[in-house]
């Protein structure tokens, strides 16, 4: 299958290109013009497409040749206008360029679209968990990923195209370590908030293989799948194991979730009293975003295994080891 991969130069996109090649697909890998890879570095079966989804251009012709798309590109940081351009406008342009014959669209969504206050006491968190009903209380990433997913869904329904929406948890691997579970560093101490809450990790190679599997498995119209690895370490456990693997970490100091929430309530009150509720708070003080990152929930991957026939290949131990190794080798 000829697969068009957006964001192919990114952390996930690079792994997706590798996984697609390994699965025998021909890859059209879209890279931004300022960071094009040298042609000689590209393996056979990969054609580099230069372009930026924020602007229409010659890349649209390459999309026209594709049989399927894996849409990894998004702006994961920056202010709202930056993320609107890099995620929403980019996706609008991509959807407008899709050829009628395109058989399948694999969309990389995110856990951030969910309502993390919705799960009950059991903490069960799966594909039936509701989407965030009030995006404005969350950050720009959630707002733009929600709109992006809605746009993709509407476009695929309109054209009758098969759509796989893949919502990965926290993708980790060489180049992305999520600070090994610590919330912040104070001197030589690593503060670990909600030390016993699971981290919803998925290794980048496992994530890429699931996305590639979504290209070919039988799907009836539309499928939504969450991705997490089999083994979910707690924040404290991740920190401990990474430190043992050689990560340059300080002494882990656990801060119970209830204490984090208490500080959040105090910040919320201060915002209401002194700033009319408009205070711009960092994640660790902002009640809705505290829940997203630190609430103790039970993440599952049954649906991913059932729908995609996927099995996470890289274990947590291997994933931590290659992440730490890559960090030590980087300048």
């Amino acid at each position: 299958m000829k697969v068009f991969v957006t964001g192919a130069g990114g952390f996930l996109g690079r792994a997706v290109v590798d996984a697609a090649l390994a699965a025998g697909h021909e890859v059209l890998a879209m890279h931004r013009p300022a960071s094009l890879p040298a042609p000689e570095t590209q393996p056979a079966g990969v054609a580099v497409v230069a372009g930026d989804l924020r602007q229409r251009g010659a890349w649209e012709q390459a999309v026209g040749e594709a049989e399927a798309v894996i849409h990894c590109a998004a702006a994961a940081s920056g202010d709202l206008p930056t993320q609107l351009a890099g995620t929403v406008l980019a996706t609008e342009n991509l959807l407008a360029a899709l050829p009628a014959r395109l058989a399948r669209f694999v969309h990389v969504s995110s856990f951030s679209v969910y309502d993390f206050s919705a799960p009950g006491w059991s903490g069960r968190f799966d594909e039936r968990t509701p989407l965030e009903p009030a995006p404005l209380r969350r950050d720009a990433y959630t707002q733009t990923k929600l709109q992006q997913e809605a746009m993709v869904r509407a476009a695929c329904r309109e054209t009758g195209r098969v759509l796989a929406i893949i919502r990965p948890g926290a993708i980790f691997g060489p180049g992305k370590d999520w600070d090994y579970g610590r919330a912040m560093r104070v001197g030589g101490l690593d503060l670990i908030f909600a030390p016993l809450s699971p981290m919803r990790l998925v290794h980048v190679a496992n994530c890429a293989e699931a996305l590639v599997a979504a290209l070919t498995v039988p799907l009836g119209g539309e499928a939504v799948v969450n991705l997490v690895d089999d083994e979910q370490p707690t924040h404290w456990g991740f920190h401990y194991r990474a430190k043992r693997a050689g990560a340059p970490l300080g002494l882990g100091v656990p801060v119970p979730y209830l204490a984090v929430r208490a500080v959040g309530v105090a910040a919320w009150l201060a915002s209401r009293l002194f700033f009319g509720g408009r205070a711009r708070l960092p994640e660790w003080l902002d009640l809705p975003r505290q829940q997203v990152r630190w609430r103790g929930l039970s993440y599952r991957n049954d649906e991913a295994k059932r729908v995609l026939g996927w099995r996470p290949r890289v274990t947590l131990t291997e994933g931590i080891a290659d992440t730490v190794r890559a960090a030590r080798q980087s300048p």
Partner: peptide, 12 residues
Amino acid sequence: RSRALAEAARNR
């Protein structure tokens, strides 16, 4: 020119 950006503004 981008309907998506206009809709984003309306949503906000």
